[in-house]
Amino acid sequence: MTTPMLEIRGLHATAGGTPILKGIDLVLMPGEVHAVMGPNGSGKSTLANVLAGKPGYEVTAGQVLFEGKDLTAMAPEERARAGVFLAFQYPVEIPGVSNLYFLKQAVNAVRQHRGIEELDAMEFLQLARQKMKLVEMSDKLMQRALNEGFSGGEKKRNEILQMALLDPKLAVLDETDSGLDIDALRIVAGGVNALRGPERSMLVITHYQRLLEHIVPDRVHVLSGGRIVKSGDKSLALELEDKGYGWIQQSAEGGAARA
């Protein structure tokens, strides 16, 4: 039997001490792309942060297995090196550190961990140039300080570029569509689609259906009140778009009442 890429069982988690996730179950197989949708405050970003190991987020019950190993026991950098990538909703700026240098450090940290030889500046530049095409990234943006003064679209394209360079097994995309105009959305989604493959799984977190027109998921999960209240195929996203989150919340409450 194939080991799931990600297996979440009965996950409860707090953010800054407040309970947010209240029992999540989700299985993501290699090569699958799942979407997680839900209204504001449903716990979408908490889920992303818990998977990446952000300080301040605490697992209080349940399990998270990555390729069968306990992910919660690993430090954030260990998770990253093992192949877990988070595309941030709000990528941070680091003044004085060039984008290119930052990416090289990250790629070499991961390569070192995997026992592959580190890349020197020239080799890295070649690799970067190749991947930059994916998201139409300019040389100019590579020379600038990391994300400093980047537009919303440039920041998100930079996230996907990092994903392409770091070659993760599991990519969590946290509201990658937020703040993007339609052209930027197309570029970003194009980059993500190019990175889909049988060895890579993705968890696409989004508020809106429009991203899923470009990145077509295998499964859609609806998160509400810290639980997955409904799962289905891609048509579920369309249904949501049609009826709104109110519909799902009501039916979830109805379900809870019946139980």
Binding site: A52, E77, R79, A80, V97, F102, A109
Partner: peptide
């Protein structure tokens, strides 16, 4: 956290 999420240790991140 951003640096660590990219595989860079905390110490290396501070130095950088």
């Amino acid at each position: 956290f951003y640096c660590r999420q990219r595989g860079i240790s905390e110490e290396d991140a501070v130095n950088m």
